[in-house]
Design a protein around this nucleic acid. Structure first.
Lengths: 123, 123
DNA sequence: TCGATAGTTCAATAAACATTGAACATAGGG
DNA sequence: CCCTATGTTCAATGTTTATTGAACTATCGA
């Protein structure tokens, strides 16, 4: 449970896998939340997403997001911090992530995504 | 087999469904081919995609593309002509389709998409 | 060293998905 | 009017997917 999990290299990131990853509502919410938080801190840890589903289900979705190259996981003690691989995605698929995020933002209600300020947890 | 099949209204087009549709290599190839052909003629008929898979499998993928709002089917005699719903998609998700198409073009080899001039059929 | 916290792993399950071939429907040309 | 070309429908199949809970591992702080 200790070592950094494997990530694909930039050139290994595949378009169909990325689109498939983003097509799941829970994963889209994770990516969206990560993007929202970016101005404040570029990473969030697993627990910050507990509202979206159960822990073991989140582990499953985190793995998918990591394996398709959408995000990066950093292990720090008992926490795992994740952040978007913006640079790599922009290099591989220019404009794609932003277009998806903007589209998601437009439909935030419909997609039940958190509002900009709900990200701060309650305790 | 005669009447025009149902299409979702513009406002019913959902982001996750669109992304999921585009995440399948065959459907991505269909959309890509449709986009390539646009300058020449804005529509293609089912048979133009026979290289991608068997007919009944294509029917299945066409239905998905239609139901998620990516393309429009027009019935003309024994043919079905399809075209991209560019305007509707641009209105709902600005920049998204273009970003996907540009990304697909970059990876055309990897994705086994047809080159710009292979679209013309052989006979 | 103990206990709590954070997250993973595993097995089970139900649903959705892609693919196939055979049978069918429809329209148009000889 | 039949024959052919175009495309659909249906049922069967095997695969992948998302979700759950229980058991587990590792780290930190008291």
């Amino acid at each position: 449970m200790s070592r950094t999990p494997p990530h694909p290299a930039r050139e290994q990131i595949e378009l169909p896998m990325v689109l498939d990853c983003l097509s799941d509502p829970i994963r889209l919410a994770i990516v969206y939340q990560l993007a929202q938080q970016e101005p404040v801190s570029s990473e969030l840890c697993c627990g910050d997403f507990n509202g979206l589903s159960g822990k073991s289900n989140l582990t499953y979705h985190f793995a998918k997001l990591r394996e398709c190259g959408l995000m990066l996981t950093r292990v720090a003690g008992t926490n795992r911090f994740m952040r978007l691989r913006r640079e790599d995605l922009e290099a591989r698929f220019p404009g794609l992530l932003d277009a998806v995020l903007k589209s998601a933002a437009k439909d935030a209600d419909r997609l039940q995504l958190v509002a900009e300020c709900d990200v701060v947890e309650a305790d």
